[in-house]
Amino acid sequence: MKAIISDAWTIAGKDLGNEWKNKQTIGMMVIFSSLVILVFSFAFDPTNNMVKAVIPGLIWLITIFSGLLGLNRSFLSEQENDSITGLRSAPIDPSSIYLGKVMANCTMVAAVQIISIPVLFLLFDYRFMGEFLWFLLVLAAGTLGFIIVGTFLAALAVNAKNSEMLLPVLLLPLLSPLMIAAVQATRIILENADIQDAMSWIQLMAAYDLLFLAACFFLFEFIMEGS
């Protein structure tokens, strides 16, 4: 188990180091999420008070849309020079490839969120009044679940020629329960309502995260096997 995590770190470190050098994927993701916010502010007038109600949903929309870009890249980049086969023939457990990719993707999406969510609040003139720690917790739980399932399906979709188109079609239906929970929990926290109401949603997200982490972790080697 320890070996799996240290190998996962090596792989995540390679991906993140690579990203740090050219900053291409992250840059695209940030620009894209800002553009989504921009388009939304044209679609719904930000000066209208009613629009405040869609903020929780928007947070998750920009996370998913920009996250999809990064997820698409994460395994496509391994196809160049077939380096995924290099990883497969290395003496590591296939699950560590998955874990490493989850770590790298999570870091990237979190980095994008750090920029895009304040931009969202800024452009929609939204004053944050909820409890910050709870907000972070909900954000972390939702993002983690998204990345867990997304990374797994990205590895699956990369086998197809049209993987960029296939990934959202596979991913979004599976994300629906997580997104319902995440949006509801975020709404409750942003409206500064009783945290107790959000508890059941947070529990649902935690259960979803754990269940799918376990399932993806064990099923990943079947994706890697190939034939």
């Binding site: 390679k14 690579n18 160049e80 077939d82 380096s83 086969t85 290099g86 023939s89």
Partner: peptide, 14 residues
């Protein structure tokens, strides 16, 4: 095993 395949398995950005 040292496996030298058809492709190089190298990362071209590194």
């Amino acid at each position: 095993i040292g496996f030298l395949g058809h492709e190089s398995y190298l990362y071209s950005t590194l």
